[in-house]
Amino acid sequence: MQPTIRLGLIGCGVAARELHWPALLQVRDVLQLVAVCNRTPEKAQALASLAGGIDWYRDWEALIARDDIAAVDIVLPATLNLAATRAALAADKHVLVEKPLAATLEEAQAMRALARAHPGKVLLVAENFRYAWFLQRLRQWLASGEVGRPYALHWHAFSHMTPDNRYIASGWRGSEAFPGGLLLDAGVHYIAVVRALLGEITAAQLDAVQVNPALGRYDGGCLHFETADGAHGSLNLYFSVPGHNEWRLVLLAERGTAQYDGRTLTLHHADGRVVSETRPDDDGYAAELRAFAEAIARGAGGSDFDEAWRDMRVIGETMAQPGRRVLLD
């Protein structure tokens, strides 16, 4: 039986409480949460109590100084990812860090350098879509060969995110320290899926807008992309849309079409067969934690920071040249 890895959690905000903690409950056989920290003591105390009265701290230095903690789960604003990851590695910890990889492309490069300097450590980014059931099922469907080559993907994501939304009320996504705003923060999810299904994105163009400055430099946009394998598509990501809410992925293959609305995946085949399946997972949160624990148990180290960089740079580089077709080598 795989030994339980003792884990510290850095950051006790809404994502830690509502996404990471429920997922940790599902993987208690491989990860044991033993301590949390947050600069606001009330948040740290509340999560420590929720987790059964475990230890809590106000700063990550005290948490990572503990020799009995082998790994940390960093659930902080992306503006703090580089500093927290650097400190955790200096304390000889394995690291799971929330996406996006960093606040800027320059900081993301620094994160990649940290990974290269610590090859014996497991360094993963909490990109839950990379582990989500719907993505694994779509990859299986394509790999079967029965629907032929995928050639296009179009994704509509429309919502109305107001400044008091609990996931953005902290304000860091609209700060100067995070110039990509909500479009970068959310956009990496969609890029990760496109790359997993269609291969590397080689060219892209972003037509972006700012409707609500509280959500950052851009809070909506249409990203047109092309891949090395000749596929194309669009990501329509708009987060200031009153009165309309839609989340729908459509994947086109030569002999089939897939649609996913966040709950139901429907697979259409050219011979008329239709298969509908309901999402059985938590969108990959538990699976990413289990993958983290299993990588540590294997003892070989390893990082997916380069993958997270490729997700991030598509948004970052096209955002730097809005309205222009950008080549991505």
Results as ranks from 00 to 15, higher is better:
residue 97 V to S: 09
residue 316 G to S: 15
residue 282 D to M: 13
residue 181 G to R: 06
residue 180 G to R: 08
residue 82 L to R: 10
residue 276 S to P: 06
residue 283 D to H: 12
residue 254 E to I: 09
residue 187 G to M: 07
residue 86 R to D: 13
residue 255 R to I: 00
residue 19 L to Y: 04
residue 277 E to C: 09
residue 232 H to G: 07
residue 204 A to Y: 04
residue 127 E to M: 12
residue 247 W to A: 11
residue 81 N to R: 10
residue 138 L to G: 07
residue 51 A to C: 10
residue 204 A to F: 07
residue 28 R to E: 13
residue 9 L to W: 08
residue 3 P to Q: 13
residue 200 E to N: 14
residue 274 V to M: 00
residue 158 F to W: 10
residue 108 A to C: 12
residue 278 T to W: 06
residue 302 G to D: 02
residue 285 Y to E: 06
residue 129 F to L: 13
residue 131 Y to C: 08
residue 304 D to H: 12
residue 315 I to F: 14
residue 139 R to N: 01
residue 168 I to L: 15
residue 15 A to N: 11
residue 75 V to D: 00
residue 185 D to A: 15
residue 166 R to Q: 13
residue 323 G to R: 14
residue 191 I to K: 07
residue 73 D to C: 14
residue 123 L to N: 04
residue 279 R to V: 02
residue 142 L to F: 03
residue 106 E to C: 01
residue 104 T to E: 11
residue 116 R to N: 05
residue 74 I to G: 05
residue 129 F to S: 11
residue 195 R to Q: 15
residue 80 L to E: 09
residue 2 Q to A: 14
residue 2 Q to P: 15
residue 107 E to A: 15
residue 6 R to D: 11
residue 167 Y to D: 04
residue 64 I to Q: 05
residue 103 A to L: 03
residue 162 T to L: 14
residue 309 W to A: 04
residue 242 P to F: 10
residue 81 N to M: 09
residue 85 T to N: 02
residue 28 R to C: 02
residue 102 A to H: 09
residue 58 R to W: 03
residue 209 V to P: 00
residue 198 L to W: 10
residue 230 G to H: 06
residue 26 Q to I: 01
residue 29 D to N: 11
residue 199 G to F: 06
residue 287 A to N: 06
residue 131 Y to R: 06
residue 192 A to W: 02
residue 88 A to E: 03
residue 327 L to P: 01
residue 217 R to E: 05
residue 230 G to V: 06
residue 88 A to F: 04
residue 59 D to Y: 13
residue 67 D to R: 14
residue 176 E to N: 14
residue 283 D to L: 09
residue 24 L to D: 03
residue 281 D to I: 04
residue 235 L to K: 09
residue 259 Q to G: 11
residue 218 Y to M: 09
residue 39 R to N: 07
residue 171 G to K: 11
residue 225 F to H: 03
residue 286 A to C: 07
residue 220 G to P: 08
residue 10 I to P: 03
residue 239 F to K: 03
residue 127 E to G: 03
residue 164 D to I: 07
residue 122 V to G: 02
residue 329 D to W: 09
residue 312 M to A: 12
residue 120 G to V: 08
residue 274 V to E: 00
residue 286 A to G: 11
residue 62 A to C: 13
residue 324 R to K: 12
residue 316 G to W: 07
residue 20 H to N: 05
residue 103 A to H: 01
residue 290 R to A: 00
residue 195 R to W: 08
residue 233 G to F: 10
